[in-house]
Design a binder for these strands. Structure first.
Length: 423
RNA sequence: GGAGAGUUGGCAGAGUGGUCGAUUGCGGCAGUCUUGAAAACUGUUGAACCGCGAGGUUCCGGGGGUUCGAAUCCCUCACUCUCCGCCA
């Protein structure tokens, strides 16, 4: 959520920035500012009346103590009128606050200056590419065929036991999952991220903190009896560790990582995009999350990119990095890099990681602050990224490392799998 | 699931209707002393909002109520702890 102070101070810049998302925000911002002026006026009046009432109450107390009942009674009468006024102003103030907050919730984050304007995936900027498309002397199979052929993943069994999008991984398929998780976690640890095991369900306040709520509750599985939400990503519990936290000083850099299954309802998805591992309701992911001083955010984002690059490099996958255009970025992001691996058999790019900086957008909701050198509270910056999401990595590994008799496990992964081939 | 007890500032913990945003201790910060540190002593130390400022307002788990006045009384919800039951 954008800060009201920022809208007061730099409305024009925000309008310009949001244009990159193809959002005409001027009228909304003007409406917010108009309500803000109204709110401040009403708030001042309310405060003054409250001050007057406090004063009267004190006087009445004194009069009672000194036995001047009659005078006290006459003062009491004066408070009656004030009470009515106070109630009216209070409801005006509350209403305005509510309206302003609702409007603020509708506004996405303002893109960083590096973000290109644009409408959709076609306007994304490729900033890096590595690796070559593998060539096969035979008909390369898509991963769902490979998974069946080598008995790695059973989608139909998942449908029987739960439903579509909840596959079973078996044998070497299951071991490969476990190896990847272990590999990703170890690599993150080497880069200084603290490993954390987090709850897989969160409460409503946490959902609001990271921006899943309100509005996007349809994307999360919900436990009605207990009012819990299944996490769609480890970002939610990890970032919410720092909800309502004020860090004591300006010198901090918090790096966390965690493996969790992720649960997504994916309402509205359909067609070939959901084939095989491309889109699941439950999948595994290692997430990296950072809380940074605003002056360190740009560097932190670059560090995270390098980390993810290292992972894909070690897995021997062809990949590219895109800087997303305004229209393709997530709601809370100020800048996002997407990592895509090339799926040789499907002949298309698959998104395997998304690394984003949110600046103060999440921190404002979370009330995550630090004390600067002047002991003043300032909002922290948050960042996060997948490092990495498993399903599409598995898809790419199977497809790109296949030969006629099986699948070759990349060197870096062998210490974790304990085998070098699937066949 | 049953019964009971709680929820107060970074932590511990007072406070049962009137200058209480809150005694005190610990912790933090600053200073005195010291070559330096520790100890001791002194001072200081919650957050948000409005205001150029002076200052004002709000917050004692959340919400509502009683009252001139609520941390304190009432209602309600949430959460935590203890004991019993069940159980990985």
């Amino acid at each position: 959520m954008l800060e009201i102070q920022r809208i007061r101070a730099e409305k024009d810049a925000l309008v310009k920035g949001l244009l990159k998302r193809n959002i005409q925000a001027e009228s909304t911002l003007d409406e917010i500012l108009a309500k803000d002026v109204e709110w401040r006026a009403a708030k001042t009046d309310l405060d003054n009346i409250a001050a007057e009432m406090n004063q009267l109450a004190r006087s009445i107390g004194d009069l009672f103590k000194t036995g001047k009942q009659a005078e006290a009674a006459s003062l009491k009468e004066r408070t009656a009128g004030l009470k009515v006024k106070e109630a009216a102003l209070k409801s005006t103030v509350d209403k305005l606050e509510d309206e302003i907050t609702k409007l603020l919730y509708t506004l996405p984050n303002v893109p960083n200056e590096l973000v290109p304007s644009g409408r959709d995936v076609n306007d994304n900027e490729t900033v890096y590419e590595q690796g070559a498309t593998p060539t096969f002397g035979f008909d390369a199979l898509p991963h769902w065929d490979l998974a069946k052929k080598y008995n790695l993943i059973d989608f139909e069994l998942g449908v029987k036991v739960t439903g579509a999008g909840f596959p079973f991984y078996r044998g070497k398929g299951a071991k490969l999952q476990r190896a990847l998780i272990q590999f990703f976690l170890e690599e993150a640890s080497k880069d200084g991220y603290e490993e954390i095991q987090a709850p897989l369900m969160v409460n409503e306040a946490s959902g609001i903190g990271t921006g899943q709520l309100p509005d996007k509750e349809g994307q999360m599985y919900y436990m009605k009896e207990d009012d819990f939400y299944m996490i769609p990503t480890a970002e939610v519990p990890l970032t919410n560790i720092y909800r309502d936290v004020i860090l004591p000083g300006p010198d901090f850099s918090i790096k966390m990582c965690g493996y969790t299954p992720c649960f997504r309802r994916e309402a509205g998805s359909y067609g070939k995009d959901v084939r095989g591992l491309n889109r699941l309701h439950q999948f595994d992911k290692v997430e990296i999350v950072r809380v940074e001083h605003p002056s360190n955010t740009a560097q932190a984002l670059e560090d995270m990119m390098e980390h993810v690059k290292g992972l894909l490099d070690k897995l021997g996958l062809q990949f590219r990095i895109l800087r997303l255009c305004g229209g393709d970025m997530g709601f809370a992001s100020a800048m996002t890099y997407d990592f895509e691996v090339y799926s040789a058999a499907q002949e298309k790019w698959l998104e395997v990681s998304s690394v984003s900086r949110f600046d103060t957008f999440q921190a404002n909701r979370l009330k995550l602050r630090f004390k600067d050198a002047d002991k003043k509270s300032q909002l922290c910056h948050t960042l996060n990224g997948s490092a990495l999401a498993l399903p599409r990595i598995v898809a790419a590994l199977l497809e790109n490392h296949q030969d006629e008799n099986g699948i070759v496990i990349p060197e870096a992964l062998r210490p974790y799998t304990g085998f070098d081939r699937i066949d």
